[in-house]
């Protein structure tokens, strides 16, 4: 019985943390949908956003800092689209991928120049007393973070499916030449997507920053997003959500039940184990877009 409650607690913790993995993965999905490119800079964008936010908070207070950071991320997005991706329209995806690598270095470098290399704490002032739900402990900050992540995800899904720009974006994802022949403005939609990816990066940076602190290792959460993308399917928003939850739960359960047997450290490999299984049996992921082939 104790094991059961322990398992439930672990599962809930896993789901809550998983929702934050989903959040990070969403940034990748956005860019991938729009330009079929794995945006290597997403982790750096998350770091840059979080650092900018914690750097600004002591100067102007939380809310103004948040607004300013949204502005800064918008600026980064417009810069990235204008200076890097617009000249590369029609280039090989691999070329664009390398360009995102360059953008990652630019962002990490300028983050160091502006905000230094010191780690920072980020206090969002969330209540800390754990929730008790039917005899199960739930961490309050995790719960609130998960709510925030869920809110964001719902907004994004609505954006994709209920707005004109969302439709344009999905059209571009399928065939950008055909999309242009419909009068869909590639540049405008791309800029919007980069801005969105920047805002998602900020949200992820905030949630993770509040949990583990803001420091340079943060850009490595991109590595956590990778298995999430493999499991969910790299162009699928529902995929990113479900896969993020799966990874979170797998990590928590793995660490809780298998960890003690082998001396811990299971958490870090669980995501990759699950991803490996998917690569073997369902390589396009849970909700990834199968190549549609008519026979």
């Amino acid at each position: 019985m104790n094991d059961l409650i322990y398992g439930i607690e672990l599962t809930i913790t896993g789901l809550l943390i998983g929702s934050m993995y989903s959040m990070v993965a969403l940034g990748f999905v956005l860019i991938f949908k729009a330009s079929s490119v794995f945006n290597f800079a997403q982790g750096a964008m998350t770091l840059f956003a979080a650092l900018t936010l914690v750097g600004l908070i002591p100067m102007v207070g939380f809310w103004v800092a948040l607004l300013l950071t949204v502005g800064v991320m918008g600026g980064v997005a417009v810069f990235a689209e204008r200076a890097i991706f617009r000249p590369l329209v029609g280039a090989e995806p691999l070329v664009i991928f390398v360009a995102t690598l360059g953008l990652a270095f630019i962002l990490e470098g300028s983050a160091q120049i502006f905000w230094g290399t010191q780690p920072h704490g980020l206090k969002l002032g969330l209540p800390v007393e754990p929730l008790m739900i039917g005899g199960v402990f739930v961490s309050m900050p995790d719960f609130i973070s998960a709510l925030a992540a869920a809110f964001f995800v719902i907004l994004l899904v609505l954006f994709f499916h209920k707005t004109r720009i969302g439709l344009g974006l999905r059209a571009i994802a399928d065939d950008h030449v055909a999309a242009q022949s419909m009068g869909i403005q590639l540049r405008k939609v791309w800029t919007i997507v980069w801005v969105l990816a920047g805002i998602v990066a900020l949200a992820a940076g905030m949630l993770w920053g509040a949990r583990i602190g803001v420091h340079f290792a943060m850009s490595l959460i991109a590595l956590k997003a990778l298995p999430v993308l493999i499991i969910g399917g790299i162009e699928s928003i529902p995929g990113a959500i479900v896969a993020g939850l799966i990874v979170g739960v797998a990590e928590a359960l793995g660490e809780g039940f298998i960890g003690p047997l082998v001396g811990g450290g299971v958490q870090d490999i669980m995501a990759y184990l699950v991803a490996l299984l998917f690569l073997m049996f369902r390589p396009y992921g849970l909700f990834g877009e199968e190549m549609i082939e008519r026979v």
Binding site: A171, D174, V177, A178, A179, I292
Partner: peptide, 8 residues
């Protein structure tokens, strides 16, 4: 070649 948006 039509070029429909296959997944829409």
């Amino acid at each position: 070649g039509r070029r429909l948006f296959e997944h829409l």
